[in-house]
Amino acid sequence: MREVFDEHASYIWRTFRHLGVPEADVEDLVQEVFVVVHRKLGEFEGRSSLKTWLYGICLRVASDHRRRAHVRNERAQADPAEHLAAAGELQPDVRAETRAQLQALLATLDEDKRTVLVLYELEGLTMKEVAETIGCPLQTAYSRLHAARERVLAALSASRERGRVP
């Protein structure tokens, strides 16, 4: 378990951020992932890579979190437009500002497209791995990626026109 933590904790953390989990909840969700891993690692059959398997757990934990947030009638995400408007105004730290800008772009996507984009563009999975992780046909994963990229480019363009360049 220690080795799994050392090797993968950072990217699990990052993935939750990119999937739109509120900052305050990320640590709890990473902990949930490792509790699951602790229970299931002995059953891991190696049909996929450990990393892909972990991503699958992350997605399910994130999905559960969104569902719980919805049930509690909480706002799991702020309005993307607010994010874009706020980026650069509220975060004096450049890295935090950049993070907020990226999150604002990702927040313009629905969950399916966002997941594919995060796994491919940010986590560096191949499209075959992306499709395996989310459990959809490869062609579907490609379609979602294409749509996500188009949406992100459009959001960037729109924000430029509003003078809120991310």
């Binding site: 990119h18 890295r95 800008q101 940010l122 986590e123």
Partner: peptide, 13 residues
């Protein structure tokens, strides 16, 4: 966009 996504890959705890 390149800058933002590159920064995203470097976002570690």
């Amino acid at each position: 966009l390149r800058r933002l996504f590159q920064a995203g890959t470097e976002d570690v705890p």
